[in-house]
Amino acid sequence: QTVHVKGVQYHFPNPEEAVKFALKVAKDLGGRVEFHGDEIHVE
């Protein structure tokens, strides 16, 4: 599972961890989380 944050990719073997990370980052940055297939983008 890959999380993209402002052009940087973070790889997580566990999808659940990836989602938790993405939600935390989005909250910290005041952004939103978008799901694109296997990828999660924080915009």
Results as ranks from 00 to 15, higher is better:
Q1M: 15
F35R: 06
Q9Y: 11
H36R: 14
L23D: 07
L23N: 12
E39R: 08
Q9T: 14
K27M: 12
G31Y: 12
A26L: 04
P15K: 15
E16N: 08
F12M: 03
D28N: 10
P15W: 15
K6L: 14
Q1V: 15
Q9H: 09
Q9E: 10
E17N: 06
D28Q: 14
V42R: 01
V19A: 07
E34H: 13
Q1K: 14
F12V: 01
T2Q: 04
Q1T: 15
V3E: 00
T2K: 07
V5P: 00
G7A: 04
E34Q: 11
F21M: 03
Q1R: 15
E39P: 02
G37K: 07
H11A: 06
A18C: 03
N14I: 06
E17R: 05
P13V: 12
V25S: 05
E34T: 14
L23W: 12
G30S: 06
V19Q: 08
D28S: 12
I40G: 01
K20R: 12
K6E: 10
G7W: 05
K27V: 08
K27E: 11
H36L: 10
A22C: 04
V5D: 01
V25W: 11
H11K: 09
F12G: 00
D38S: 12
L23M: 13
Q9D: 06
D38C: 15
G37T: 05
E17V: 07
V42N: 01
T2P: 03
P13A: 14
K27G: 09
H41F: 14
Y10Q: 02
L29D: 04
G30K: 08
D28L: 14
V8L: 10
R32A: 06
Q9P: 10
H4N: 10
E16A: 11
A18P: 00
G7V: 02
R32P: 02
V5H: 05
V42A: 02
F35A: 04
V3W: 02
V3L: 02
D38I: 09
V33N: 00
L29F: 10
Q1E: 04
K27A: 13
G31D: 03
L29R: 05
K20Y: 08
H41R: 10
V25Y: 06
K24N: 09
V8W: 08
E17D: 12
Y10F: 10
K6H: 13
L29G: 05
V33M: 07
V5A: 04
T2V: 13
V8E: 08
K24F: 07
K6D: 14
A22S: 03
F12L: 04
E16R: 09
V33A: 04
G31A: 11
K27R: 11
E16C: 11
V19W: 15
F21Q: 02
H41Q: 04
G37P: 04
F12H: 02
E17P: 02
V3F: 02
G30A: 07
E34V: 15
P15N: 12
A26Y: 02
A22V: 02
G31P: 01
Y10K: 02
F21A: 02
Q1N: 13
R32I: 10
V42M: 02
E34I: 15
K6T: 06
E43M: 15
V19D: 03
V19L: 15
P13T: 13
K27H: 12
E16P: 04
L29H: 06
G7Q: 05
V19K: 10
K6N: 15
H11C: 13
V33P: 02
Q1P: 09
K20L: 10
E43N: 12
V19S: 05
P13Q: 13
E34W: 14
A26E: 02
D28Y: 13
V8A: 08
A26H: 02
V42S: 01
D38E: 10
H4I: 15
H4L: 13
G37S: 06
V42E: 01
R32L: 07
V25R: 06
A18D: 00
Q1G: 09
E34C: 15
E39A: 11
V3Q: 00
H36M: 09
V19F: 14
K20S: 08
H41W: 14
V3K: 00
V33F: 04
K27W: 10
L23I: 13
V33L: 11
V19T: 07
G7P: 03
F35H: 05
P13N: 13
F21Y: 08
L29C: 11
I40M: 05
Y10C: 04
Y10E: 00
F12Y: 03
G7Y: 04
D28R: 13
E43C: 15
R32G: 04
E34Y: 15
H11Q: 08
L29N: 06
D38K: 12
K24L: 10
E17Y: 06
P13G: 10
E43V: 15
L29W: 09
V25G: 01
V5C: 05
Q9G: 05
V42K: 01
E39I: 11
D38Q: 11
H41E: 03
K6P: 02
P15S: 13
G37M: 07
E34P: 01
V8D: 05
K24C: 14
P13L: 12
P15M: 15
I40S: 01
P13H: 11
G7L: 04
A18S: 03
F21G: 01
V33C: 08
E17H: 06
A26P: 00
A26F: 03
I40V: 05
V5R: 02
G30F: 07
H11G: 04
P13Y: 09
D28W: 13
K6W: 13
V3I: 03
E43S: 12
T2S: 07
P13D: 14
F21S: 01
K27Q: 12
D38A: 11
D28F: 12
E43A: 12
A22Q: 00
K20G: 05
Q1I: 15
V5E: 00
Q1Y: 15
E16Y: 11
A22F: 03
D28M: 14
K24H: 08
F21E: 01
V3D: 00
K20C: 14
P15Q: 13
G30M: 08
A22Y: 03
I40W: 06
H36S: 07
K6V: 06
A22N: 00
A18N: 00
K24Q: 14
V3H: 01
K27D: 08
Q9S: 11
P15F: 15
G31M: 14
G7S: 05
E34N: 10
E43Y: 15
G31I: 05
L29Q: 06
H4D: 04
P13K: 13
K24G: 08
G30T: 04
K27F: 12
V3N: 00
G7R: 04
V25I: 13
L23E: 12
T2F: 08
I40R: 01
V33S: 02
H36I: 13
K24P: 00
H36A: 07
V42H: 01
F35L: 08
Q1W: 15
H4V: 15
E16Q: 11
V33K: 00
L23Q: 11
E16F: 10
E43H: 14
G7N: 06
Q9F: 10
G37D: 08
T2C: 07
H11Y: 14
E43K: 14
D38T: 12
Q9V: 15
F35T: 05
G30Y: 06
V8N: 08
I40P: 02
P15R: 15
P15D: 07
L23P: 00
K27S: 11
Y10I: 05
K24E: 11
E34D: 07
E34L: 13
L23S: 07
H41L: 08
V8P: 00
H4K: 09
D38N: 13
V25E: 04
E39M: 09
T2A: 06
Q1F: 15
T2E: 03
V33G: 01
P13E: 13
G30P: 06
G31L: 13
K20T: 08
N14W: 04
F35G: 02
E34R: 14
A18H: 01
T2R: 07
Y10H: 05
D38Y: 10
V25L: 13
G30E: 06
H41P: 00
R32Q: 07
K24V: 07
Y10D: 00
E16V: 10
L23A: 08
E39S: 11
V33W: 04
E17S: 09
K20H: 07
H41T: 07
Y10S: 02
K24R: 11
I40Q: 01
F12W: 03
Y10L: 04
N14P: 00
E43W: 14
A22I: 03
E16L: 10
G37N: 09
R32N: 06
R32S: 08
G30R: 08
A22R: 00
K27Y: 11
A18V: 00
V8T: 09
R32K: 10
E39Y: 08
G31T: 05
A18M: 02
R32H: 11
F12S: 00
G7E: 04
L29P: 01
T2D: 04
V25P: 00
K27I: 09
A22W: 03
E34M: 14
N14V: 05
H11N: 09
H36W: 12
V25A: 09
I40D: 01
A26D: 00
V25Q: 07
E17A: 11
G7D: 06
E39T: 10
E39C: 11
F35V: 08
F12E: 00
H36N: 08
Y10W: 06
K6Y: 13
H4T: 13
K24T: 09
G37C: 09
